[in-house]
C-alpha cells in the first residue's frame, strides 16, 4: 500500500470553493482533460443533519504505460464512484471516491476535505487530500510495487494539475458571479 497526502490552501472563501467544486471538471478547467464526463447519480439533503449527500460517476480516459496496460488488460476508459457530503453549518465539504474499473487488481481510495483555513477562515480555504493506493494482485511483490509506484506518481501529477485547474475555475467563477451581480443591479 502507498499513501499520497497533501494539504494546500486556496485564496477564496469556503463558499466560493464549495460552489466551484461542482464545476471543477467543466470547460473552465483546461488542466484535467483526462476527466471526460461527470454524472450525478443521486442527491438528497438529510433532514436531521442538513447534510447534502451526492453520488457521482466520474468517467476518465487516461493512458497507462504499455507494460501496465498489457499486464492489467486495461481499457482506456475508467470509472470512479464518488460520494460527497456538504455540511453547510460546519462549513465542511468531504468527498470520498474510489475506482470502479480494475478494482480487483488495484484500489485507489481518495478523500478530499475543504474547510475554512485555520489561519484566515473568512477569506481562505484549506484543502486536504489523501489517497490510499493498494495493488491486490497475488504473488509478485515487485510487480505490486511497480504498479503502486506508477499509480501514486500519476496520482500526484493529476493532483497538481487538478489544483492548477481548480484555480482557473475559481477565478472564472468569481468573475461570472460579479458580472451576474452587476447585471442584477442594473435591472
Amino acid at each position: 500500500m502507498k499513501i499520497f497526502s497533501a494539504t494546500t490552501e486556496f485564496d477564496y472563501t469556503w463558499e466560493e470553493v464549495s460552489v466551484g467544486n461542482w464545476r471543477k471538471y467543466g470547460p473552465w478547467n483546461e488542466k484535467t482533460p483526462h476527466v471526460i464526463a461527470v454524472d450525478t447519480l443521486s442527491r438528497s439533503v438529510d433532514p436531521a443533519t442538513g447534510i447534502l449527500r451526492t453520488e457521482r460517476l466520474i468517467t476518465c480516459k487516461q493512458s497507462a504505460p504499455q507494460w501496465l496496460q498489457h499486464f492489467l488488460c486495461t481499457s482506456s476508459v475508467s470509472h470512479v464512484f464518488e460520494t460527497s457530503y456538504v455540511d453547510p453549518s460546519a462549513k465542511k465539504v468531504t468527498m470520498c471516491s474510489h475506482n470502479m474499473t480494475m478494482a480487483d487488481l488495484l484500489t485507489v481510495q481518495e478523500t478530499v476535505v475543504y474547510q475554512p483555513s485555520p489561519t484566515s477562515p473568512a477569506a481562505r480555504t484549506q484543502m486536504y487530500q489523501n489517497a490510499k493506493i493498494t495493488a491486490l494482485c497475488g504473488g509478485w511483490q515487485k510487480i505490486k510495487n511497480s504498479i503502486e509506484q506508477f499509480t501514486v506518481d500519476r496520482f500526484s501529477q493529476n493532483a497538481a494539475m487538478g489544483r492548477e485547474g481548480f484555480e482557473m475555475v475559481l477565478e472564472m467563477s468569481r468573475k461570472a458571479f460579479a458580472e451576474q451581480r452587476e447585471q442584477q443591479a442594473k435591472l
Binding site: E15, S18, W22, P27, V35, A37, D39, T40
Partner: peptide
C-alpha cells in the same frame, strides 16, 4: 459544466446542473 457519459443526455444534464448550482449557492449555502 462537464459532459455526460451519454451524449444524448447532455442537454438534460446541463439544465439540471444549472438549476442545481443556482439552488446550491443561493439557497442551500444560505
Amino acid at each position: 459544466m462537464s459532459a455526460s457519459l451519454a451524449p444524448e443526455c447532455n442537454e438534460k444534464k446541463e439544465r439540471y446542473d444549472t438549476c442545481f448550482l443556482k439552488w446550491y449557492s443561493e439557497k442551500f449555502l444560505r
